[in-house]
Design a binder for these strands. Structure first.
Lengths: 143, 143, 143, 143
DNA sequence: GTGGTCTAGACCACT
DNA sequence: GTGGTCTAGACCACC
């Protein structure tokens, strides 16, 4: 079962945080097709945000084709975002888990780690853009 | 010079994106004390957002003690967030750059990479929480 | 400018009525790409429904790719649903206008007219289904 | 025998769709006084909605005086909504059947056809409103 | 002054 | 007891 953690005061709307965290769980395979999301009530109990806000997030994901809201039953995953290469026992995953642990142990904060990865992603994209001419764009997921 | 990229439609307020990206540059050392941020005019030209929105972000960072607005001159960095271990030639940085490139080359999207790192960070924190009792909290930067 | 008419008590959610009426205007060419929808405030003034309900409808249409909400500016049509054959001076349109007038003059109510057309649509679909075997389905727009 | 088709996802409550479709059949004469509606069980089998929802619709129609629920026997039509002019062999009906077929053959979708008719109805009402002063109102059946 | 988020709470639809 | 609509009103982001 997913557990949402809402950071009030991050400036990021609560419903966006729910959507992002759900998508992340889908990408990681933590959430699979058919799985049930926590009910709005459960999320409310766990996070102290308003039921309407939770439903807003669920509705958005429904329109995005990720989940299905069934009245009287709950909300269920209808599409997977899982990627080969991101499984729990993949080499890439073992490596990043190890690297992250070392980075944290070296005194880097969560934000530092994410900044490093973002910089690495940007570097990779810029590298590719340079070699393959075309319109240079970085895809969302930035903020 | 930092280059802001605003993702309209990410749901994240534009001024938050500016602050986040600036902080990231500070953590990475891309931006150092004394450096000048782009003028509102320049940001507007590059991103098509309203000057007031840029100024709002700069004012927020001034209040956070990160930058100083000198009227007629520009906005200047007053504090560093750089971390030892995150320098451009540090081993951690070389490793993550390499790993990211391999992950992307393996077909993972930007979002997948960030999801993997976030999961690794969560795993690390949970691990520590288990061994060292205390209030279990994950700090912002999550959404 | 579109003018929404909300039938409270029809059982159909107000935001659905707004979406339906907007789509209808798009199909008829009454609303064209670039046109501005009435502001939420204007709709509120004209229909006595809550601003949030209007915004809910506009947001839904934005996600459907029909309109774009620009903060501080308004809501604008981004996609046309106009169909060749449905223009104001097309033969089909002249014919239906004439037929409808005669039906109404003959004492049929609005609901009768719509029932007749729906029956005719059903008959047409059933006819086709009979001749071309396959899964028999009637598309939405039914309720 | 009527055959209900429920469009989940149209936003219109299922029980409203049942009532609407029944009324339409009454107006068209497809359903006559004394006719038996399908049992809740049959509707459930055909539409995969909950029996309670069907009963809710039947009860609403009973209160509206359209049908009578006889326990153990079924639900029966008690009132006609048929209109002279809408019979199966009336000229108006032949004309609209023909027109609809041509409209569909010309590439118009079901929704386009309904939009055209609605526009024609609106035009007719507006015309009359202009010539005969009074409160200008469009009756339900709109959404 | 535009759209946008969130809250609170009432009532409804559906299983 | 699930999700769903709507209202009212406060406050925010953006132009």
């Amino acid at each position: 079962m997913v557990e949402y953690r809402i950071d009030r005061g991050s400036g990021v709307p609560a419903y966006v945080q729910i959507v992002d965290q759900t998508e992340r769980a889908l990408r990681m395979g933590t959430l699979k097709v058919g799985d049930k999301l926590p009910t709005a009530r459960e999320v409310v109990a766990a996070t102290a945000i308003n039921p309407n806000t939770v439903l807003r997030a669920y509705r958005d994901m429904e329109q995005a084709g990720l989940v299905e809201l069934r009245r009287g039953l709950g909300t269920f995953v209808t599409r997977s975002l899982a990627r080969p290469g991101a499984e729990g026992d993949s080499p890439l995953r073992r490596e990043i888990t190890d690297w992250t642990a070392r980075a944290r142990a070296a005194g880097l904060e969560r934000a530092d780690v994410l900044a490093l990865v973002t910089a690495a992603l940007d570097a990779y994209d810029d590298e590719r853009d340079t070699h393959t001419p075309g319109d240079r764009e970085r895809k969302k997921e930035d903020a």
